[in-house]
Amino acid sequence: MKIIVCMKQVPAGTNVEIDPETGAMKRMSGETRTNPYDLFALETALLLKEKMGGTVTVLTMGPAQAEEMMRDAYTMGADEAVILSDRKFAGADVLATSYALKQGIEVIGGADLILCGRQTTDGDTAQVGPAIAEHMGIPHAAWVSEIVNVREDAICVKQDLASVTQVSELPFPCLITVDKDICVPRLPSYRLMRETEERPVRILSFKDMPDQDLSRYGLIGSPTAVERMFAPPETQKQVYLEGNADEKTEQLFSVLTEEKII
């Protein structure tokens, strides 16, 4: 089985810069980490590989610093890593991001199964995974909480949707987005870190894409734009209460009264 896991580096905190002209996040301006939901997708892929055999390739779109995340994926058990990195991809919305990733998937030969995390912690749209599938014309299932069964030609999954639980069977090739309850990601392996420290991370640029229509990528290919992005202002501060239980109760009552909560 050939599995591709789409991953993303996201800000590790709120200390990031915003481009005043485009409204896009300057991804080199602060510390980053692997999107937490993508770790569940990677672990799911590794468990399927252990059961069915095959390979796991991790794919991302971002700046060169994303190599650090890809090497972390190697230490968990990924076989290959590919980064789509080009200034022409910058500023992409869901439509342009998913199209570029679809093009990257074509370049690396496609997959039986594509896995994505439910959403990213910076965009929170939960739309990129399904959009990739729509671009590719393959079936997809979102918010997957359990792999019920997997065969050589199909996968059966349980989806925890807003008000119902649904069991769906999808023929390969297909795409699923997984929720955090599906598994517990394994820890990085020191042995794998040593074994993969010389393993290359493949870089693909715009010139490698099958579709050379620049209007489909990056800021130019994005029909939506962020009007404003900012860290929310701090509106409340912690209050520490001291004394015995009666004194703390009286202080708490005063605080709640002043805030007009009671």
Rank of each mutant, 00 (worst) to 15 (best):
P171D: 08
P130G: 03
P200Y: 07
D72Y: 15
Y74G: 02
K248C: 09
L46G: 04
L47D: 07
T249E: 12
S254W: 10
Q159L: 04
E80M: 08
Y240S: 11
T60F: 00
T257R: 14
D19F: 03
E169F: 05
K260W: 13
Q159D: 08
Y74Q: 05
R186A: 08
Q159C: 04
D213C: 08
L192E: 03
G30K: 05
L46P: 04
F172V: 03
G243A: 06
M136H: 11
V226L: 07
L170A: 02
A225C: 09
R194F: 12
D160V: 09
L84Q: 06
L219V: 10
A90F: 11
D153L: 08
L84P: 15
F206T: 03
I18G: 01
K2Y: 14
A90D: 07
G23T: 03
L175D: 09
V94M: 04
W143C: 13
E169M: 04
C183P: 09
L42A: 00
D79M: 07
A133I: 10
P63D: 00
K8L: 11
L214A: 15
D153V: 13
D181L: 12
E80G: 07
C183T: 11
E197D: 10
N15D: 15
T121F: 15
T165V: 15
G137K: 14
T44I: 01
P185H: 06
V94C: 03
K207F: 11
L115W: 12
K88Q: 07
E234N: 08
G218S: 03
H140F: 15
N35T: 03
D72L: 14
D93V: 04
L95V: 11
M25Y: 03
T120Y: 10
V94W: 02
D93E: 01
E68R: 14
T165Y: 14
D122F: 13
K8H: 07
S189L: 09
E106S: 02
G137Y: 15
T257E: 13
M209G: 03
V226T: 06
A66H: 05
G104R: 01
A131Y: 14
R71L: 05
E169A: 02
E43C: 02
S168F: 13
A141T: 14
P188K: 05
G13N: 15
N149T: 06
E43F: 02
F89P: 08
S29D: 07
P223K: 03
E242I: 09
I4A: 10
V56C: 00
E146G: 06
L256Q: 04
Q103T: 00
W143E: 13
R191C: 07
T57Y: 03
L252I: 09
L219Q: 04
V178L: 05
P63C: 00
G117W: 08
R71K: 04
E17V: 08
